[in-house]
Amino acid sequence: MPNLLSKRKRGLLDHRGLWLLALPALVVVVLMQYMPLPGLIIAFKNYNYGLGPWKSSWSGFSNFTYLFTTGVAARITYNTIKWNFLFIVLSHSLAMLVALLMNELSRRSIKIYQTIFFFPYFLSWVIAAYLGFALLSGDRGIINTLLTRMGRDTVIWYAQPDAWRVILPLAYLWKHFGYIAIIYFTALIGLDPQLFEAADIEGANRIQKVFRISIPQLKQLVVILVMIDIGRIFRSDFGLFFQFTRNSSTLYPVTDVIDTYVYRALLTLGDPGMAAAAGLYQSVVALVLVLLSNKLITKLDEESRVF
């Protein structure tokens, strides 16, 4: 028996078991994610439908230039990063707060809250856009009707970019905080009760327990989730920026992001090569950002690093 244990510790026997556990998922990932990747080659091609991805002629980097030639390039890059960064901070803070609060309550009431917080996640942006329009529409919107009743001037919300600096985060939070809260809450109820019992013995109060146990215990999960979000920081929630804003062009200074720009730019041409170029650009930037943040995290706290 001790012999077996030391063998395991040297990592001889267990490798087969671990590989066995990892293999099915790896096969799926390779088959579904890696195998189609060579197709990205079309980002560098003059795509011809008759010739297909391999035989089409090379075009160098010319498929990329539309992303950078105009003054819009700076704006869409800035908006994309700014909004995603803000969304990450806001949604994770609110979700964490709600999860911690829920953790203080009895199981029965939690079930109800948990279910309700999840509701907005089920409504597609298309539906949310209609509800938003009912609130914000110029002549008949609920908000403008209230403003009129109060004797105030009405606002053309869909032509008022500044207002969307507030509306966008609210809409995002409304739709997304619920499921992030559930993620955190799940982690909290999974914590070892002994940790809290020990703190009880030391006479810690509720707030102290939150700061000394709950939050530190969630640290690794936060790091992972934020890292995932950073991996997507150059892509945007298209439904929010396109459908929810009704693609209203007067709002672009605030709401225009890379994805909406690419959609608009390729509307006439529908060129697969140029679409692929945009995707590749977003991927490369995200890769750089992820690697940098991983370095930073490793430096700050070796334990929490993701890779």
């Binding site: 990892a22 998922a25 790896l26 990932v29 994610q33 890696y34 195998m35 189609p36 990747l37 060579p38 197709g39 990205l40 079309i42 795509y47 297909g52 991805p53 995932i228 991996g231 997507r232 697969p272 679409a275 692929a276 995707g279 991927s283 995200a286 890769l287 992820v290 993701v306 890779f307």
Partner: peptide, 21 residues
Amino acid sequence: ITLAVFFPLLFQAGLVPFYIY
């Protein structure tokens, strides 16, 4: 393995290549 799983989060083939595949 972590890297192998994380990488596709960043790089996707996109609509047309995936469809062809």
